[in-house]
Write a protein that binds this DNA or RNA. Structure first.
Lengths: 215, 215
DNA sequence: GTCTATAATTAGATAGAC
DNA sequence: GTCTATCTAATTATAGAC
């Protein structure tokens, strides 16, 4: 089939272009927000001509959604992979693994939290979409485990939704501020050791109780 | 002096215009960031003609600085006032008052944290200015008290700079996400009761130890 | 102190050649 | 699938009348 070969070649190049645009979009949107980034800036970062954005993603809004999808899809893959290695019967170890995974992923991909921050500054249709498609499903699963840990006396008492959000901002929210924290606190959050220290500090503050011995 | 009266009247109006522009700028910049907000948007929100921005503040950058100055000046006033009422000799009570004051101020003026978030998304000259003029002075004072609390066993051990930033994001950083948190966690952070609960939860997690009895 | 008019730049999106 | 050219609208900033 002599006509299938060039067709595949074109498809491959198309995928590469799309990935370059998505990575550039993630960077630009997390730096300057939706309104603050121009499609020209994204195209320049990706090294492609700006009308290609319309071609591949229709418009700025659809490109934003595709970029958000990419971030959360990769996060979920990391999460599922990490959680698969912890025994179901030890909820504290599972929570600790969740925190460590979240911290390490948010360091490598700070856009995970930055995109949320940018969109949460005021109500938008993009925020509604983000909540419905990515944030709520994750929240509901995690808060279930957190209630369990509170019942066991491992996590401190109080509204579990509040506790979840405190943990979340202490991890991703703190790492999203890395540039500022380096400047004001002289704290370098770029080393593996610093990430471990942050993870352990979060566990120490939010999961202070020991697991009760099983009979 | 018949010529001083119209002069004062003009000065008064000028001040009102400047304040309206500053409030509008605070809202707009915290919603859309520096790049994402247009001076026209700010002028529209303030209900004044947009060339007045150039007249009163020279340019967008100077208006941003004046807006940031206004937020931090008011926060410092609130802080000094609240801290003056707590006895010097009880560092835990002082820290608790700091947290409650921060939470309540950040609720009324979420721009306090949002402006920082917007500028911390990547290095800018504005962030450098913010760190030098507002963030570092505050940080250095608070971290001193935090070290004291760690020595007393009230605050958990670990890097005090890390602890400070965890507390900060759990208060201001969480409130900056209020719109999103309402959507995903169904948690309404607008009531006095919710703010008190958040404050107490922060105190519970980050200042878990009792004050040792004084001899 | 206020306003209109406008210059110069940059934005998102499209049309059509290749 | 890629590119040039271009349209329309919106941007920051300034000049100058009142």
């Amino acid at each position: 089939m002599s006509e299938s070969k060039p067709a595949r070649k074109q498809q491959q190049r198309s995928i590469v272009t799309q990935l370059k645009l998505l990575d550039a979009a993630i960077d630009a949107f997390s730096e300057n927000g939706f309104k603050g980034t121009s499609t020209r800036d994204i195209a320049d970062r990706a090294g492609v001509h700006h009308p290609l954005i319309t071609y591949h993603f229709k418009n700025k809004e659809q490109l934003w959604r595709a970029a958000a999808d990419r971030i959360f899809r990769e996060f979920n893959i990391s999460l599922v992979k990490a959680m698969a290695e912890v025994p179901e019967i030890d909820p504290r170890a599972r929570a600790a693994t969740f925190i460590r995974t979240y911290v390490h992923f948010a360091h490598g991909q700070p856009a995970l939290h930055k995109i949320i921050l940018q969109e949460s500054s005021h109500p938008t249709s993009r925020l509604d979409w983000l909540i419905k498609n990515h944030l709520r499903p994750l929240f509901e699963e995690v808060v279930k485990s957190l209630k369990e840990l509170q019942a066991l006396g491992v996590a401190p008492p109080g509204d579990p939704a509040l506790l979840f959000n405190m943990i979340r901002v202490s991890a991703g929210g703190l790492l999203a501020l890395a540039v500022e924290i380096k400047g004001t606190s002289n704290l370098d959050l770029d080393s593996e050791a610093a990430l471990d220290e942050l993870s352990e500090m979060i566990i120490r503050c939010f999961l202070p109780g020991e697991m009760p011995a099983r009979h």
